[in-house]
Each structure stands twice: as C-alpha cells, then as structure tokens.
Write a protein that binds this DNA or RNA. Structure first.
Lengths: 182, 182
DNA sequence: CGAAACATGTAAGAAGTTACATGATTAC
DNA sequence: GTAATCATGTAACTTCTTACATGTTTCG
C-alpha cells in the first residue's frame, strides 16, 4: 500500500500544474499556497524521493550552468490517479482549525482583565499588516481580468485568504470596541 | 530549560480555570476548545507527567468509588507564571491556517471543471450541519444573559466559532452561485 | 567580487495520531 | 447485568520543525 498524506497530495497537485524541482515546491509553500499549508524543505526533499520510489512522480536531472544538477520532478499517471482520487473524495473536517490567540482570550476569561485590551490591539495591528500584504499581492498579480481567468486557481485562493483575513480583523475590532465601551 | 509548547500552555490554561484529571482535559478538547485545538489522551497523559516533573503542575490522588485512583492535577505558582508569560506574549502567526478543501479547489483550477460543483455542494452541506450544531450548543449553554457573563471566555470562543463558520459557508455559497451562473 | 537566491541534502528531536491494553463506575 | 462512560496508560509510527551542512549561480 502506497502511503497517503496531505503533503504528498499537495506535492502531486503542484507537479500536476507544472514540473518542478524541490526548490520550486518549497517556494510554492512560501508563496501562493502558504496561507493554507506549509512545509519545510527538509520535509519536501525526502518525501519526493519516497514518492519517486512509489512511482507517483518521476524525475530527470537537468544541468544548470556548468555543474549544478537539478532534479526536475514530474507527475506520473499513477500520481495523477492518486491526486484525482484525493480531490474527488469528500473533505472531512481537518484535525482542527487551530487558533492560539482565541485560546488566550479564553483563558483570560474576564472582560475586565486589563491585559485584554493590549492583546487585542497588538493582534489587530498584526492582522492589518497581513491584510495589506495580501491585498498588495492581489493588485500586483491580478491587475487584469485576463490574469484572473488564466490563473483562476491562484486567484481563488488569494481572494479567499483576503476574505478570511478581513473577517478575522472585523471580529477583533468588534471585540475591541465592546471592551472599550465598558 | 523547561520545555515550552502550545499543548503545555493550553493544559496550564485549563488547569488554571479548574483542577482536572487527564480525562477532564481530554474532554475539554472534545468540547469547548475543540474548535481551536485538539489533543489525544495518549498525548495528554504523558505530557501531564512531564509537566509534573517540571513543577508546572502538581497532583493529588483521589479515590473514586472503592478502588479507582484518579490523578487530580492542579497548576502551581510556576505554572501560573508560565501561563501568564504565554498569554501576554504577542501571538505570532501560527505555522498555518491549514485548509485542505481550498487547496483542492486550487488544484482543480478551472471554473468549467465538472467536479467543482459537486465538491462545493458536498462541502456546503457539511458546513451547514456544523454550523447548526454550533448554534444549538450556543442555545443550550447560553440561554440567559447571566450565563454569558459568568462563562464569558467560553461564550466568546463559541461565538467566534459560529462567526468563522458562517463566513466560510457564505464564501462557499457565493462560489457555488458564481459557478452555476456560468 | 560579494550578496542574494538557487539548490539539495541529513540528523535529531518534538508534536501528533492510531492502535493496543486494561480496569472501574454509573445509569438504566 | 450490561452498556456507556470514566479513567489511565504504553507502543509504534507519522508528521513536522530546527539545526547542521554544503555547494552553485545570478545579479549588481
């Protein structure tokens, strides 16, 4: 039985879009899909080797410059089969939508606690910055309707990342207002 | 140096609210805080032992019935110190807000893909159910203004869980509408 | 030429899951 | 009495992070 894990499926998905090196995959986790999953290169490289052994991907060595050997990975038919099976299977609840900040609020417990105002303010300014960052990426990457269409998947997740961030911020600001009105 | 991990802090937070057995803590992850963090009992019990060794918590053996020995854990002064330090420290971005479903959409990529409609419908019905479940918990647990005040932390996170779920559903439904209008 | 980015790996350990294992108490 | 829940643990394994380690290419 070939091992199944979300990381494997995501790597397959990325390779389905385009053949890539381990380094490219690492960057995808830093950029477009980084809002929804992350992985370190120390996790990616060994996983690619195992996926290669399992026949989900293949690779060819590409020489860059004069001596740098890059491993260009591509998805195989078997890999595509695995990927589609994952995509089409119902997505169960994830282990959890973890949120450390909300838990901190839970433990502070009282509206009157003097710490709560500072905590909210700090969190708000962090999320404002993040939202601005996401929005500027949206402007840069999708400045024309054409680009939205041709890279629809990417547009979709960035749009959702912004939506999620806006709502989080909205909630924090509302709580801050509630607290200060007491 | 005493080990620090989110699980430890959450356990400290729970014990700060009230002394508990490992089993009680396990249940907290199933109920009130389960929307924002989860842990298995096989992770909790050994962690409690280590926290005890580190002096963050203590325990006394309570006999229930005639022979059942329960370990009732309580937070120590050192544990409280650790807890407050965590609460007051700025909350960095979590490793990630993982979302497997969004990634699947990203890999499907095209609006025209026949799979996308089914995927959205499935996800929507799952989230409707979850939202209903959360809302019914809210009604049962917080039927009076009084209860909202006395268990404010709990009220707060349940309220946020509902807000988060509503927004997710809103987005999914909007996407479904967009797709069907093509 | 030097810095940033490209490129790939290993090692050690922490965090988290699934399965195995056992027994007591409570409520019907 | 029996099923559900209470209660606690261990073992094996997967997943994930941090740190160590090294060398190449590109751009200014």
């Amino acid at each position: 039985m070939i091992k199944k894990s979300t990381l494997r499926y995501i790597i397959l998905g990325l390779l389905y879009k385009q053949e890539s090196t381990g380094y490219d995959i690492k960057n995808a986790f830093k950029n477009e899909i980084g809002e929804f999953w992350k992985a370190q290169h120390s996790h990616i490289y060994p996983e690619l080797v195992k996926m290669d052994e399992d026949g989900l991907v293949g690779h060819k060595v590409v020489v860059s410059g004069t001596k740098l050997n890059k491993k260009m990975y591509y998805i195989t038919d078997l890999g595509r089969e695995f990927l589609f099976e994952w995509i089409e299977s119902p997505t169960q609840e994830l282990p959890t939508n973890k949120d450390e900040f909300i838990l901190k609020l839970y433990f502070v417990e009282s509206k009157d606690d003097t710490r709560i105002n500072k905590m909210l303010k700090e969190q708000i300014s962090m999320h404002i910055e993040k939202l601005l960052h996401l929005k500027s990426r949206m402007e840069i990457l999708f400045d024309t309707e054409d680009k939205k269409q041709s890279k629809y998947g990417h547009y979709l997740i960035l749009e959702y990342a912004i939506f999620r961030e806006e709502n989080y911020l909205k909630w924090l600001q509302e709580k801050e207002k509630e607290i200060s009105e007491m």
